[in-house]
Simulated assay, not measured.
Amino acid sequence: MTESIEKVQNKIIEEFSILDGDQEMTNFYIMELGQKLPEMDEADKTEDNIVKGCQSKVWLTASLQNGKVGYLADSNTAITKGLVSLLVRVLSNQTPDNIINAELFFPQKMGMDRFIGTQRSNGFAAMVKQMKLYALALKSKAEA
């Protein structure tokens, strides 16, 4: 069974709490998470799949299988790739409704604003928005 969005977020908060706010360790861990993202097909790295509002290039695609949304993502920078990997982990394998209505509390609870600047925070918000838009579009398509 799929874990709830809330449960996945709590696990992430727990993982980051072990790092005790150490900025260098936190950044390293985020980059490590990015390396674990499934490979994105080069053919999907198109202008259409770029998340608008990110300073770095972030590619994002979504598909619906058995009523659950699956995301694939990549970025041209290690930190941003790690950040998008957290979102993929939280929001993948969830129903469109769960994604659309998700309250993402993990960035705040893990103190993400302490180690990513305003520019990255804006990019992170743009990624969340894009993932919710994809979920909405897939839901509409499935109901059509």
Rank of each mutant, 00 (worst) to 15 (best):
Lys57Tyr: 08
Pro107Arg: 07
Glu47Ile: 11
Ile13Gly: 08
Lys141Asp: 09
Ala125Tyr: 07
Ala125Met: 09
Asn27Asp: 02
Glu42Ala: 12
Leu60Trp: 03
Asp48Lys: 13
Ala135Thr: 01
Leu60Met: 04
Gln55Thr: 13
Met112Gly: 06
Lys7Thr: 15
Phe106Ala: 05
Leu19Val: 12
Asn66Pro: 06
Asn66Ile: 01
Gly111Ala: 04
Leu37Phe: 09
Leu83Gln: 13
Gly111Trp: 09
Leu60Lys: 05
Asn76Pro: 06
Glu39Cys: 03
Met110Asn: 10
Asn27Glu: 09
Glu6Gln: 15
Glu32Thr: 06
Ile13Pro: 02
Ile116Tyr: 10
Asp74Ser: 12
Ser85Lys: 12
Gly82Arg: 09
Met40Val: 00
Ser85Gly: 09
Val69Ile: 03
Leu138Lys: 03
Ser140Trp: 10
Arg120Phe: 02
Gln35Arg: 14
Ile18Leu: 06
Asn93His: 10
Met25Val: 10
Leu72Ala: 14
Thr95Ala: 11
Leu87Met: 05
Ser4Tyr: 10
Met25Asn: 15
Phe16Arg: 05
Leu37Glu: 06
Ser56Asp: 04
Lys36Glu: 12
Ser140Asp: 13
Thr26Arg: 01
Ala125Val: 03
Gln35Lys: 15
Lys81Cys: 01
Ala43His: 06
Gly53Glu: 12
Met110Cys: 11
Val84Asn: 11
Gln94Asn: 11
Ala78Gly: 05
Ser56Trp: 01
Lys7Arg: 13
Asn98Tyr: 00
Tyr134Gly: 06
